[in-house]
Each structure stands twice: as C-alpha cells, then as structure tokens.
Nucleic acid binder design. Structure first.
Lengths: 197, 197
DNA sequence: CACAGGCGCGTACGTACGTATGAATGGATA
DNA sequence: TATCCATTCATACGTACGTACGCGCCTGTG
C-alpha cells in the first residue's frame, strides 16, 4: 500500500477520532505509515487530503446506512415506518463517530464548495431513496409530493440524529417517532365519522 | 464598557463571521477594542472566552427564535402547521449565521460538556414548547405522546435547517413540509370508505 | 499626599503548525 | 550495468498562535 492510500486511511481514522478541525498533518502521519512531506506530494495540501478523506468516509457511510434498511416491501405502512426509524436509531448507536463527522462536514462545507456540492447531492440522493421507499403505488405518482415526502423523511432523520448525538436519554427513539406520527395523524385528520363536515 | 464585555461581544461577532474553530485570539482583539492580554486576565484562556460567547449567543438565539413564532391559537391544525414551517424557513433566511453557529456549537459540544448540557436543555425546552403549541385539547392529555410529538417537530425543524443550509434550492420549503405531511397522512391512513377492512 | 490594587497595554516567548527543499531510494527499462 | 522517474524521507523554514510577563495608568481610600 502506497503512501497515498495510507494517508487517506489515516486521515479517515483521524476524522473519526479527532474530527476535521482538530486533526493536524502530524496527527495523520503518526497514525499512518507515511511521511510528512507525502501529504504535499500526493494531495497538495493537508486540507485537500482531509476533504478527500471526508468524501470517502461519507460514501462509506451512505453504503453502511443503505445496508441497514430492510424494506420488507409488503408490510403495512406504519410497520415499515416504525422499523425504518428503529434502524436509523440503531445505526447511530453503532456508527456514532460517522454521524459526528457528518455534522462536522456540514460545517466545513460552509467553506469548501466541493464538499458542499458533494453533501448536497448525497442529501438529494437520500431524498429520492426515501421517496421511492415509501412512495405511493406506481398508479398515483405525484412527483412534487414524492419529493416533499422524501425531503420530509430526510429532515426527520437528520433531526433525530442531532437530538440523539446531543442527549440520547431524552432524544426520541424509533418507537417515539412512530408514536408521534400516529398522534399527528389523529390530531390532523380526526376520523370523518367523528367529525363529519 | 470594560474589556470583559468588549471581548464577549467581539467573540460573538467572530463566532458569526468565522465560526468557533477558526477564530483566533487576535481576531477577537481586532474586532473588539480590547487588548490581547485581556483575554487571559478576564477569562483565563481563549477557549473559555469563546465558550462563554457561544453560550451567550445560544441564549440570544433561543430568544430570537421564540419571537418568530406567532401561534394564532385557533386556526385549524393544518393551517397552523404550514404557517409554522414557513416561519421557520424564513427565520433561516434572515438569521442564517445564527443557525450556522448553532450547528457548529453542536460539534463543539462533543468536547465541551458544559455547552452540551446547555444545548441539550435548550432542545428539551423546544420539545416541550412544540408539544404544547400543537398539543391536544386539555381533555385528552397523553404525556408520552405529547413528548414524542414535540421531539418529532424539533427533529423536523433541525433537519429542515440542515437541508436549507446545505442547498436552499433543493431543500424543502414550508409549503413542501405541509404537503409532505398531508401526503403522509393520506398514505398512512387511507380514508376508510375507500379501503374498508 | 501616598499608595495600593484593579485593569489596560505592548511585547516577548515557546511552540505547533503547514509547507517547501533537496537528497536518498528502489524498481523498471534498456 | 546505467539511466530514469516516481516516490519516500529527514529536516528546515516561516509563520501564526496562545499565553506569560512586567510596566504604566487610573481611581479610590486612608
């Protein structure tokens, strides 16, 4: 394995252990088997290396999350919904540092347009995936509504992650999310036979 | 105004303009009228100063966000729902840096327990506020469901913010969020007269 | 007036950082 | 073997940083 790969691997490890902003070039060297000057040689700068590592880590993260979902396409909606959110919450428990890095990447993206684009398109992909995972039957396609639902799910996921990162004790569980949606449905659309109009 | 206050104000300004990780002691000095050595004198260290500033900024942020909500308590649910999310999206447009700081604070909280506690209790407060803003009539109180709904709203808000920070073009608008909920309700609870079981 | 203490101020110190330099290495090619 | 080029390596350079130091200026107190 050449220094290029070692540097990328070391940088990713540092991303998990120290985060983006706090890893130094010498941290990466200490962790990998490479040489200080190899950073400049292979990547031009430390920042370019870290950005590349962040992008790779994000890709791996997306793959890992994808593998956690177990669609079971014919279960009733609410059941699929609840199992999805249980899986999402479990994913955070197992890959916490990945999620920490993801939010750190969000901050770095404010300064790094390339990274920002990358994250944006990842989010867009997630919207589409969610939309078709929970989309309507093929009959009643409504593109705008599907996109909105996808974005809604993604937002919910990101927000659940924020809360669980901050305070797992009080953050919602997968069950809580499902309960909340059921409650919302009851309150937003009281059964017509109760309140006929 | 003594240096102590000037330093806090300057540090907050730097938080907005450069973020936590990238502001240096000399940045703060340049912006405030204070002296380099005053940081050590009044706060002990630069990090202590920045943390204090971050906590103050978070408090002001919470106040500012609170003021943006305009309950209109007697409108129908869906109307209140949509106007809430329009307000949230507008709040991001107007106070973008405030929200950027908030997410940076989230990252720093990984290393600063005091800040983490502060943010956690802010989130808990938001959960409760949302819960009672969209809670049930006083008759049918269900504490667990209310908490879940509060957490659900908070998550949705945080996630919408993430998406709008990253890519306002493709991120959901307030209308999109309302559309998504309507769609979800239709799909989750198909009107009984269409699919009787 | 004397003087003490809180505070402001300029500056120096030590260090950690990112990057640059130039020599050394090693394997492929001829 | 001789040559060459990509890579590795040790180290140096310049800089930006956080903090420490010590003097000077006020204001309040006796």
């Amino acid at each position: 394995m050449g220094h290029r790969e070692e540097l990328l691997a070391g940088a990713k490890q540092c991303l998990y252990e120290r985060g983006y902003a706090r890893t130094t070039a010498r941290d990466i060297i200490a962790v990998s088997g490479a040489n200080l000057a190899s950073i400049g040689y292979h990547f031009g700068s430390k920042e370019a290396l870290l950005t590349a590592a962040l992008i790779e880590a994000t890709e791996e993260w997306a793959e890992a999350v994808n593998k956690m979902w177990d669609p079971d396409p014919d279960a009733p909606f609410m059941e699929r919904f609840e199992s999805l959110w249980k899986a999402v919450v479990a994913s955070l428990a197992e890959h916490r540092n990945l999620w920490v890095s993801t939010f750190e990447a969000l901050n770095q993206a404010e300064r790094l347009p390339e990274l920002k684009q990358r994250l944006s398109s990842d989010v867009e992909l997630a919207r589409v995936s969610f939309a078709q995972l929970f989309g309507p039957g093929p009959e009643q396609a409504d593109e705008r509504a599907d996109r909105a639902v996808g974005a809604f799910y993604v937002a919910l996921m990101q927000g659940v992650m924020v809360q669980r990162l901050l305070d797992p004790e009080r953050a919602p569980t997968g069950e809580d999310i499902a309960l909340a949606l059921r409650t919302l449905i009851e309150r937003a659309a009281p059964t017509p036979d109760v309140h006929p109009e």
